[in-house]
């Protein structure tokens, strides 16, 4: 194809997206569109998978059977989210093996929030409330993103997320209305998870790259700062209902803006964790790699058994 022909195809492609038409896997797409989507979708999938680890840490120690079945179901949903997203990514022509290899080698990133530890049971409440809450705000706009398989996966994911957030908030509510020690535990979890949750929306708009391209392809509909503000505005009243305080002395309602003002975010910490120096980066990745390697014999045995069965069928038919 000549350069002019490609330019022409690109113009048709961009117009299609502007008209709100979806792009499907076998449609022509610019190489950059394919690469950007493989990167973003696989990062998203990896986040769902690694995201199971901090919560999985508390399944055996959940304080009641009710909490235990809920947490199990939530963590199982996150596995499902990862699988929806991996298979949607594979439609772009990359294999599952390659995707795993990118995660396990450290080449691919996942959401930094999962590099923080879950020290107490209240952390499970705070994660559902804040981390799933922030994830919902990030994910809802993606239900109408331009790449069909991604949009469809996100519709399914978003339907399931609301239970995640509600079960987390209910944990916080119970602790906040419990003994002074329990309330303190809830406050401590909020103190530790608040700022990392705000960082989930990514760098501030003036520091963030490729936003314009992402807007055009509907990978983004609002900027990082807009989404962060939305999260703060909706979460502060929820904290008030819990009777807990947000750990930010600068947090104040701004009548004129119609939004909460908030204090500076520690972006040094953010970049440290992104670069691999968070409290649990090594442990998370190692746990994931171990699970994959220790499961190898099971995958091999299942494959060998399937082949043996298929052979037997052929013989019987012959």
């Amino acid at each position: 194809m000549s350069e002019k022909e490609i330019k022409n195809l690109e113009a048709i492609f961009e117009a299609k997206i502007a008209r709100d038409e979806k792009i499907e896997p076998k449609d022509w797409m610019p190489e950059k569109y394919r690469k950007t989507h493989i990167r973003q979708m696989s990062q998203h999938a990896h986040s769902e998978i690694v995201g199971m680890l901090p919560e999985g840490n508390w399944i055996t120690r959940a304080p009641s059977l009710r909490r235990k079945v809920a947490l199990l179901a939530k963590v199982q949903d996150e596995a499902g989210h990862g699988l929806y997203l991996y298979s949607a990514t594979e439609t772009l022509g990359i294999s599952r093996e390659e995707l795993y290899e990118q995660l396990h080698s450290g080449k691919a990133k996942y959401s930094s929030i999962f590099n923080y530890p879950t020290i107490t049971w209240a952390d499970i409440g705070a994660i559902g409330w804040l981390v799933d809450g922030a994830a919902i705000i990030n994910q809802v706009p993606l239900c109408s993103t331009s790449f069909g398989p991604y949009a469809r996966a996100m519709v399914r994911v978003c339907k399931e997320e609301s239970f995640h957030q509600r079960q987390g908030y209910e944990i916080m509510l119970t602790l906040a209305n419990g003994t002074p020690e329990q309330k303190e535990m809830a406050q401590d979890a909020l103190n530790r998870w608040w700022w990392p949750s705000l960082m989930m929306f990514g760098p501030t708009d003036d520091m963030s790259t490729h936003t314009e391209q992402s807007m055009k392809w509907k990978l983004k509909r609002k900027t990082n700062d807009e989404l962060r503000q939305q999260f703060i505005d909706q979460t502060v009243p929820q904290a008030n209902i819990l009777g807990l305080s947000i750990p930010d002395p600068d947090l104040k309602w701004n009548e004129e803006r119609g939004h909460y003002d908030f204090g500076p975010i520690n972006w040094d910490e953010f970049w440290q964790v992104v670069k691999g120096h968070g409290p649990c980066n090594k442990e998370r990745l190692q746990t994931r790699v171990d699970a994959w390697e220790e499961g190898e014999w099971v995958r091999d045995a299942a494959m060998a058994y399937a082949e043996k069965k298929a052979e037997r069928k052929v013989k019987q038919a012959g």
């Binding site: 699988l83 298979s87 995958r299 299942a302």
Partner: peptide, 8 residues
């Protein structure tokens, strides 16, 4: 609905 990997 989507796809997945399985041995058989």
């Amino acid at each position: 609905f989507g796809s997945l990997h399985a041995a058989d």
